[in-house]
Structure formats: C-alpha cells, structure tokens
C-alpha cells in the first residue's frame, strides 16, 4: 500500500460521507413539520451508510472494470466506491427519469449493469445472485470477481449459508463481505447470533475467512487484497467480516431508543480518525483535507442539481418495463 493508495482511500471515504451528509439534509429538509416518510423530494425509506465507508473503500480499491457487486438495502457507499455514476444514482434517489432505473427503483434498488452493480431490499438475497454472476465470469474465462455485501444480521438468513456452500463447492470467484455494525435494526448481534465471528462460519464451509476488528480502511484493504487475488487466480471464494459502525439510525426516522452506545458513536467515526493518522504520518495536511472535502462537496452539489433539474416520470411510464 503506497501513500497514494492511502490518500485515494481517504478521498473516497470523504466523498461518500459528504454525499450522504447532503442526502441526509435533503431527505429531512422538506418532511417537516408533520414528518411523513412518503413526502418530499426524496420519499420512502432511507438507509445511510455513514461510518461504514472503510468496508466499501477498502474492498473496492481492488476492483476493476467488469467486477460485480451485489449490495443490500444500505448501498450508497459500495455504489459510489465501485464507480456508479453519482448523477444517475442521485437522480434515481430523487425518482427522476434520468435515474439509474428511471425512477422505478429508488435507493434500495439501484441497478447499474455497466458497472455490474445491483442491490436488493430483501435481506441476504444478493448472495445467491453474486454466486451466479461469479459463475458467469468463470464460464466466460475472465478473471473478474464478484463481491457480495450484507450486514451481520443477514448472515442468519438461509440464502447466506446456501451461497457460501455453492461458492465453495463450485470454486467461484466471490468475495463475501459482511459489515458487522453491531445492530440489525434494534437487535444487537449477541441476541441474534451465537457465533462471534463469521470467519468461523466461513471455515465451516471450507472458505478462508477474516474478521477485521477495528473499522480500519487499511486493514480492510489488506484483507480484501488477498481475497481478490485468490478469486482472480481461480482459487475460489473468501469471506471478510468488517466490524464497523452505524453512525446513524437504521433508517432515517429511527429514534434509536434501543441503543445504549449512542454517546460514543461520534468518537468512533472512522473518517476523522483516519485523517488524524494520515496527518500524523505526514501524508495529509489540513489544507489538503479541506481541498478534498471541497472537491467532494462540489461534485455532490452538481449531482443534487442534476437530479432536481431532471424530469419527473409521467404516470404512463408506470406501465413500461414489466417485460423485455
């Protein structure tokens, strides 16, 4: 890992954070005073990934054109880190015709075939699809890989276990990524999962697994590098569990009354921590950090403007696209 790698990862994390910070503002901006989830320029559920950037950035740093990702209901960080166009993604979140899915999908259902990116709002159901994409890559003789992402809660769903076995027995180029943010909505990990590490579960399926304990992008980068190399060279699947942090509620509007760790959340934010460590190492200056943030904000402003200026679909559009 070079200094350039580190700076690039920092920049990408800031880009994602600035994006979601702005989406958060815009989402809430026009829902008050009578808070109504269906109202406003961005209607519907909103699951933000703030705090989980290290997982996406550390993994996606190793991906190249043709590699695929299946993401869950909390997809923004992986989408942006994988190169999904910010304008088209934002327009989709705003339900516009210029959106990735022409306004049909929304924030939980982003589809970008060019980047082989998709997500699903049904827990763990991206795992089997990832196996199929990996199977296709293998049969086509490419060295592309698929990354299957979900939360620690999703790892108790049957599809997760079926997929691990499929990937192992078919020796598929899949990297299973589990973002353990301690919570599945209001249910803490220890109440849902007897096993403390999904790396152990991977071992049960004959797959190498690593648990990255401290939400550190460099540690994720190291683990993902090994896993992606393995997959590209035909050695089969791997699993990486990242112990990460949900900075915000499960969805916007979640009061988090169930959560005892709220007070310490801000001090565990991985981005300021990484900035401090880069500065200490002399790899980042305050001025550079300001520039990085300003550049991100400018890109985000432009994406929001693009979305807001884009046309709203017509009622007739609702009947299109049921069949090819």
């Amino acid at each position: 890992m070079t200094s350039l790698d580190r700076l690039a990862m920092y920049t990408e994390m800031v880009r994602i954070r600035q994006y979601e910070t702005r989406i958060l503002q815009e989402y809430h901006g026009d829902k008050t005073p009578a808070w109504d989830i269906g109202a406003g320029l961005i209607p519907g559920e909103m699951h933000l990934s703030a705090g989980q950037e290290p997982a996406a950035v550390g993994v996606c740093a190793h991906l190249k054109k043709g590699d695929a990702i299946t993401a869950p209901h909390r997809p923004h960080h992986f989408a942006l880190a994988h190169g999904v166009d910010m304008n088209a993604m934002t327009a989709e979140i705003y339900g516009r015709t210029t959106g990735l899915c022409k306004g049909k999908g929304g924030h939980m259902h982003l589809f970008d075939p060019e980047n082989h990116f998709s997500c699903s709002g049904i827990i763990a159901q991206g795992y089997p699809v990832a196996c199929g994409q990996a199977l296709a890559m293998k049969r086509k003789g490419t060295d592309n890989v698929t990354v299957a992402v979900a939360g620690e809660g999703a790892a108790n769903q049957g599809a997760f276990h079926e997929s691990l076995n499929l990937a192992a027995v078919w020796n598929l180029p899949v990297i299973f990524v589990i973002e353990d943010n301690d919570w599945a909505i209001s249910v803490p990990r220890e109440a849902s999962t007897a096993n403390t590490s999904n790396a152990d579960r991977a071992a049960g399926y004959g797959i190498p697994g690593v648990r990255v304990e401290d939400n550190d992008v460099e540690a994720v980068f190291e683990a993902a590098g090994a896993a992606v190399d393995r997959a590209r060279s035909g050695e089969g699947p791997s699993l990486i569990e990242v112990h990460t942090l949900r900075l915000l509620g499960h969805f916007e509007g979640d009061a988090q009354a169930y959560r005892p760790d709220l007070e310490t959340v801000d001090e565990r934010d991985p981005i300021p921590r990484y900035a401090a460590s880069l500065m200490e190492a002399g790899e980042l200056t305050e001025a550079q950090a300001d520039d990085i943030k300003a550049a991100a904000d400018a890109e985000v402003d432009a994406a929001i403007q693009f979305a807001v200026d884009s046309p709203i679909p017509t009622p007739e559009d609702a009947l299109q696209h049921v069949f090819a």
């Binding site: 519907g44 306004g103 049909k104 999908g105 709203i312 679909p313 559009d317 609702a318």
Partner: peptide, 10 residues
C-alpha cells in the same frame, strides 16, 4: 414503482 407519480399512477 418508487417515484411518487409512478406509484400513484397504479
């Protein structure tokens, strides 16, 4: 569908 105009159309 997601967008309000689309959803309310159906």
């Amino acid at each position: 569908p997601y967008a309000r105009t689309l959803e309310y159309a159906i």
